[in-house]
Design a binder for these strands. Structure first.
Length: 462
RNA sequence: GGCACCAUAGCCAAGUGGUAAGGCAGAGGCCUGCAAAGCCUUCACCCCCAGUCCGAGUCUGGGUGGUGCCUCCA
C-alpha cells in the first residue's frame, strides 16, 4: 500500500487515485537561466514519485509547465519580468532566451534519467486559456482591476494560507512588504498585469495589452489537461507559502471545491551547510559538475541517498563519496550479471523484493531502498540478483543495466612518458625492483599513476 | 519578531517502542616483488534534562544547537 506525505495535512496518507490514470502536475522551471543542481534535485524528486507510481502499476498523466513569461522579480508583483530582464542582458528576444534555456533544461533532465512528463506545457502557448480563466474569476467576484492589473482578492477566500499554515496578519506585520497602494490587501496577487509599451511580451486582453501573472499559468494548465481534481501536485518547498497558496486560491475559487488531493514538496539543497541560491552565487550546474569529473548519474545517486523531504547538504566530498559508491555498485552488478550459473534462493529474493517494496511505498523512501539494493549486491554473485536489481532500477533510474567492469580507458600520453613507462616495465620484468620503483616515482611526479597487472601495466592520470 | 522543519559514528544517511540499514573515509587481513585496484573483516548505545512505559534513537514536556520560510528562488 502506497503512502504519500501530504503537505496539506502534514501526514502520510494512503494513496487513492481519483480515476484509473493518476493525474499529476509538477511545477517546472522558469527558463531565464541555467538550472542549477538544487533545481534539478526537485525534478529528480518528481521523477522518483512518477517511477514509484509506475512500479506500483499505475498509469500516469503528468503535466509540467515551462514558465516563459510572467515570473516577476518581486513577488509583490512589482519589478521586471525575469524573461525580459534576461532578454535585455543577453540581447536576445525573450523567445530566444526561453528556447535556449528550455533546451538546456531538457538535456539536463535527460542526462539525469528524469523521465519527461507526458505533457510539457509552455505558458506562452496558453495565454488565451489564462485570459478566460481570469475572466471567470472576475465574474465570480474574486478579481478586481487596478491601474496596473487584475488582482485576486484574498479576502474572498477565507481559507487562504491553509497549505503553509501561516498567519497572514502576523507575517505581514513582521515583514517588509512593499505595499501597492491600489491593492486591497497586501497579499492580493496579480492575475493579469497591464504591460508598459516597452514590455516585449504582451497580449491583447479585455483589460488592454498585458501579460499573465505567474501563478495563473499553473492553475490554468492543470485544469486544462488534468481536470478539476487532480491526484498529485509537486514542487519545491519554497512554493508552499506563496505560489501554491495562490494556486489553491485561484483554483478553488473557480471550481468551488478542492482541486488537488496530495501536495508533495521536495526539500531544498544546501551548500556547505547554508542556503544555495543564484543571488548568493554558490550554485553549480550539471555541466560544471561534469567539468569537475562527476557523471550526471553520480549526482542522481547523491540525491537518491537522501529522502526527498530532508534537506540535502551539497559538498564535493559528499558527491565524491556518491560517485565512488555508484561506480562500485555498477562494478559489483557486472559480476552478478556474468554469474550465469549461480542461483539465489527464491525466498531470499522475495525478501529483498518485499523490503524494497515496503521502502518505496513508505513515502518514497528511496535511501532505504538503496540500502536493500546494497545488501543484496553484497550476496554471492548470481544472475538472479542482477535481474532483480534491474527490476529495482525501474525506480532508481541509475542505468544499472549499463553495469560494466570497472575499466578506465587507456589514456593518451606523450612519447617521453610512454618511454619511461616502457623502461620501468622492462626493469620490472627483470626484477630490478629498485629501478622500477624509481621510475614509478618519476612518473608520479609527472602526474601519472601506473598500475601493474599480470600481463601489462596501465597509466592513469593522478 | 512570527512560523516551520531538523539534531543518529570522521563524513553522508535509513530507522513500524523491544537491545542501531546502507554508502564514503579509516583500521586489520588476503592478493601484489612493493604498491594501486579488488576481496574479506572491523568501526556508534542515537544533542542535553525530566517524564510515560516492562522496555525509547523512536512517544510527551522543557532546554540547547542548526537550517529554512515570512523578500526572487526548486
Amino acid at each position: 500500500m502506497l503512502k504519500l506525505y501530504n503537505t496539506l495535512s502534514r501526514e502520510k496518507e494512503e494513496f487513492k487515485p481519483v480515476g484509473k490514470t493518476v493525474t499529476m502536475y509538477s511545477c517546472g522551471p522558469t527558463v531565464y537561466s541555467y538550472a542549477h543542481i538544487g533545481n534539478l534535485r526537485t525534478y529528480v524528486f518528481m521523477d522518483e514519485v512518477r517511477r514509484v507510481l509506475r512500479y506500483d502499476g499505475y498509469k500516469i498523466k503528468g503535466v509540467m509547465n515551462i514558465t516563459d513569461v510572467g515570473h516577476l522579480l518581486s513577488d509583490g508583483d512589482d519589478g521586471e519580468d525575469k524573461m525580459e530582464k534576461a532578454s535585455r542582458e543577453q540581447k536576445k528576444t525573450p523567445w530566444e532566451i526561453a528556447e535556449y534555456y528550455t533546451g538546456v533544461f531538457m538535456k539536463d533532465i535527460a542526462l539525469l534519467n528524469i523521465g519527461k512528463p507526458e505533457i510539457i506545457a509552455k505558458a506562452t502557448d496558453h495565454i488565451q486559456d489564462m485570459i478566460e480563466y481570469v475572466e471567470k474569476l472576475v465574474e465570480k467576484g474574486y478579481g478586481y482591476e487596478t491601474s496596473d492589473g487584475i488582482y485576486f482578492d484574498i479576502s474572498k477566500f477565507p481559507e487562504y494560507g491553509k497549505l503553509s499554515r501561516l498567519n497572514l496578519e502576523d507575517q505581514i506585520a513582521g515583514a517588509r512588504v512593499e505595499v501597492n497602494g491600489e491593492k486591497r490587501h497586501p497579499a492580493d496577487f496579480a492575475l493579469w498585469k497591464k504591460a508598459a509599451p516597452e514590455h516585449i511580451m504582451q497580449w491583447k486582453s479585455p483589460w488592454g495589452m498585458g501579460f499573465p501573472g505567474w501563478h495563473i499559468e499553473c492553475s490554468t494548465m492543470s485544469r486544462k489537461y488534468l481536470g478539476s481534481l487532480i491526484d498529485i501536485h509537486t514542487g519545491g518547498v519554497d512554493h508552499i507559502p506563496v505560489h501554491h497558496e495562490n494556486e489553491i486560491a485561484q483554483s478553488e475559487a473557480l471550481e468551488g471545491h478542492k482541486t488537488v488531493n496530495t501536495w508533495m514538496h521536495g526539500e531544498f539543497m544546501l551548500v556547505d551547510g547554508g542556503k544555495m541560491s543564484k543571488s548568493l552565487g554558490n550554485t553549480y550546474t550539471l555541466a560544471q559538475l561534469e567539468e569537475k569529473g562527476f557523471e550526471p548519474l553520480s549526482y542522481r545517486y547523491f540525491c537518491l541517498n537522501t529522502h526527498y523531504r530532508k534537506k540535502l547538504n551539497f559538498t564535493f566530498e559528499g558527491l565524491e563519496a556518491a560517485q565512488t559508491a555508484y561506480r562500485r555498485l555498477l562494478a559489483a552488478l557486472y559480476e552478478h550479471k556474468i554469474a550465469k550459473d549461480v542461483k539465489t534462493a527464491p525466498e531470499k529474493l522475495q525478501e529483498y523484493k518485499e523490503a524494497f517494496q515496503n521502502a518505496i511505498d513508505d513515502d518514497i523512501n528511496v535511501p532505504m531502498a538503496l540500502g536493500v539494493l546494497w545488501t543484496m549486491v553484497k550476496q554471492p554473485y548470481s544472475h538472479d540478483i542482477y535481474d532483480l536489481a534491474l527490476d529495482f532500477d525501474k525506480v532508481f533510474g541509475l542505468s544499472l543495466d549499463k553495469a560494466r567492469p570497472e575499466e578506465k580507458p587507456e589514456i593518451e600520453v606523450t612519447d617521453d612518458i610512454r618511454a619511461i613507462a616502457e623502461e620501468r616495465w622492462q626493469a620490472r620484468k627483470n626484477k630490478n625492483w629498485a629501478e622500477s620503483d624509481r621510475l614509478r616515482d618519476v612518473l608520479a611526479e609527472k602526474g601519472y599513476a601506473v598500475l601493474d597487472s599480470k600481463d601489462g601495466y596501465k597509466l592513469e592520470k593522478k
